[in-house]
Design a protein around this nucleic acid. Structure first.
Lengths: 212, 212
DNA sequence: AGGTAATGAGACTATATAGTGTCATTTTAA
DNA sequence: TTAAAATGACACTATATAGTCTCATTACCT
């Protein structure tokens, strides 16, 4: 009732054309993302996944082997998009920080994080992938910008800056007690975090309020 | 094979004495904690919980109603102990910070957090309880100490300080990619975090390394 | 064309698990 | 002393779900 609302049409039978086949895997991953995000791994049945993707169980098993295989493929697919930001050079440290805040507090990425944390015992590899392609890359990019704008001496502040950018707000997001921030709130929080560490472009050093 | 290793003796039948009855609820909660922490909510069966607590399912249902009731009781019980530190006044800001780092990075509390994050959609009330009795109280206590040692102007740094105390290390803990820090590592991290915000007692202002 | 591969539809199996019922046993409470 | 309450042991029900099998259908490939 919550998921597959738009498309109710049934797929035609028989072997799919090349184009259909190519598109189908991505469709399944997209559908799986939605279902897993809203119900978690353990509480999601293959039947629900199949009907959300408008595909039969057979196809899912043919593509991904089993439920764990689908989950793994889905997480890796989404994780690969976490940090891929086109032009690093277009950003100042401030705008980069604001984008990180906005994106990492989004429903999608908070949900992904929640999923991987929940299943970290069963899928330790996914936890590693998410950390390496997520946090580690963000910190590295922050370090690049700090180096360019503030010099070598401040580079060690990249990691604490990242921690402040997430901050208590992100913990509340993981617990589901707060809604996602707006772009405006994200920018304000990024500025406060930079000020907190003396990394602000020109404004005063003491932050007024670090909450979103 | 992993859980109930020490006590294999079966309990005698019949109605328990008053003392046995009083102790039994706590025993069940303790056993449930261990099992839930290692297997999560969804993947833990009542049968396993019952045998870990050396109690039959009937007793569990009599005490807690159902599986969700047991889970809720267990989380609330543990959450109530998160922040209960005896004497606030015995601590300096530094030792308080170090204790927070050490305790919140422990296997027990990281596991609790993981559980509640995983089930935040099903048990939003527990997420609220954990946040209110955990993070919120820690931040308040940090604020008290900052006020006492550094004055009113620095009190707004309590929340960012808390974020730095957890830091990237705590995210790695949630993902299960790092072991718990030693007390020594916790103290070093606390000092670095304080220095980062200019809250250090007397040492230099620039932190050398914020990792554990 | 004709053979093969991939799919939908849906039945089917095997298993796990939440929760209940029954009965004997032991303590409590009056 | 005795009825009632609480418990262990364990069978039992109902349901859910992962994964497989069969068959008809459709597209791909030579």
């Amino acid at each position: 009732m919550t998921e597959q609302s738009q498309v109710t049409a049934e797929r035609k039978r028989g072997r799919p054309t090349r184009d259909e086949r190519r598109a189908r895997e991505a469709e399944i991953l997209t559908a799986a993302l939605g279902v897993f995000l809203s119900s978690g791994f353990g509480s999601t049945s293959i039947d629900v996944l199949a009907s959300a993707a408008r595909v039969t169980k057979r196809t899912i098993y043919a593509y991904f082997g089993d439920k764990a295989g689908l989950f793994t493929a889905m997480v890796k697919d989404l994780a690969s998009t976490v940090s891929l930001d086109a032009a690093t050079d277009r950003h100042t440290l401030e705008t980069l920080a604001a984008r990180i805040v906005f994106r990492l507090h989004s429903d999608e990425l908070v949900g992904l994080h929640r999923l991987v944390i929940a299943e970290s015992a069963r899928f330790p590899e996914l936890a590693r992938v998410l950390h390496d392609q997520g946090d580690a890359r963000h910190i590295a990019r922050l370090a690049e910008h700090i180096l360019a704008e503030q010099g070598q001496a401040r580079v060690p502040l990249a990691e604490p800056l990242f921690s402040l950018l997430l901050g208590e707000a992100h913990r509340r997001r993981l617990l589901g007690v707060d809604p996602a921030p707006t772009a405006r709130q994200a920018l304000r929080h990024a500025r406060a975090s930079l000020a907190c560490l003396g990394l602000a472009p020109r404004t005063g050093r003491m932050p007024k309020n670090l909450s979103l």
